[in-house]
């Protein structure tokens, strides 16, 4: 107490504070380095591609050099290969199907997780945990964690935390239990591509949709109930229109995740040209045969797709969702 009093009696202005600029400087340098690293990755890809010799096709002989580059660059060359055209088409189709399927699943799951009132269960678990707490805090924490909501929450995160290769292997193993006919239709075929993409992409869509519904005040839904709506009517008339931005964000995120998916695909769908080859597989295949330029070119096509998705999500989607 006496020390407090002596502090208070000290004349104002004597307490000096160090300058703030070193703090900002250090933070800005660390942050800046990371941003530069990200940009350098992309710039490096582009620079590598532009560096190549420009001869151009015969019919472009009399074009100026810079114009010739546009018709004779690795991207152009890659795009003209039929197997890469197939891979681009399959990527676009499978990612879109995955995104739509993910939304179909993420909307109900996200809604249920956001609105699930676990208060009653939590209360009971707390009652059990309290006497235990005296002996072991950790055990009490585990008991409290055992509510079905927390459990399902954790399960929903499994595809996010599991190593991608393990997901692919698990899919492969799972289909060993299916009848031969089904297995042959799916494994190492196009459906496997979609399924492998879906397992991971959907987990991200679920997170977005859950955050979306948590941000929508349940009050408006309750008002809709008092105004004569059933649960379904309240959802489709009030909640759904309010969550459209979230749905768009979930869809684009799932799409982008699906585009970048590789590990599970390689194991569950294989990397067969003109069959289960998507863009990420193409990069892998081109690299494995030593065609670095084609690999970079396809990577840049994917970068372009990612940028488009990012812009869509930023402009029309919700931008304050924690994912």
């Amino acid at each position: 107490m006496s020390s407090l009093e002596s502090d208070a009696s000290a004349p104002a202005g004597e307490h000096r504070v160090a300058a703030d600029w070193p703090f900002y400087l250090i933070f800005a340098v660390i942050g800046g380095c990371y941003v530069v690293l990200i940009l350098a990755l992309l710039i490096g890809d582009i620079a590598y591609m532009v560096r190549g010799d420009v001869t151009g096709p015969a019919w472009a002989g009399d074009m100026p050099a810079w114009l010739r580059w546009f018709v004779d660059n690795p991207i152009f060359a890659a795009l003209s290969k039929p197997e890469i055209q197939y891979s681009i088409t399959l990527s676009l189709v499978s990612c879109t199907v995955t995104a739509i399927m993910s939304i179909w699943v993420a909307v109900p799951v996200g809604y249920l997780m956001a609105r699930w009132d676990d208060a009653m269960v939590a209360q009971q678990l707390d009652r059990i945990a309290q006497p235990v707490e005296h002996h072991s805090k950790r055990l009490a924490a585990i008991i409290r964690w055992c509510s079905p909501k927390a459990l399902i929450d954790a399960i929903l995160d499994i595809p996010i935390v599991l190593p991608p290769l393990v997901i692919g292997l698990s899919l492969l193993i799972l289909f060993q239990f299916f009848p031969r006919g089904v297995r042959e239709e799916v494994v190492y075929e196009v459906p496997a591509v979609v399924l492998a993409q879906f397992v991971v992409a959907c987990a991200f869509a679920v997170r977005v949709m859950r955050a979306t519904y948590e941000q929508i005040d349940a009050r408006r839904e309750q008002v809709a109930l008092t105004l004569g709506c059933s649960r379904a009517q309240a959802f489709f008339r009030v909640v759904m229109p309010e969550s459209m931005r979230g749905i768009l964000t979930a869809g684009t995120l799932a799409w982008a995740r699906a585009l970048g998916e590789f590990g599970p695909l390689l194991i569950f769908a294989g990397a067969t040209r003109n069959k289960t080859e998507v863009l990420s597989t193409t990069v892998f295949l081109e690299l494995s045969i030593g065609d670095l330029e084609a690999a970079v070119a396809v990577s840049l096509i994917m970068v372009l797709a990612a940028v488009v998705v990012l812009v869509i999500a930023r402009v029309w989607g919700s931008n304050n969702l924690t994912i």
């Binding site: 005040d217 009050r219 408006r220 309750q222 008002v223 809709a224 008092t226 105004l227 009030v238 229109p241 309010e242």
Partner: peptide, 13 residues
Amino acid sequence: IGFVPQDGALFRT
């Protein structure tokens, strides 16, 4: 019942 909550809770869309 007609229910008027604290902040009005109007349907924003």
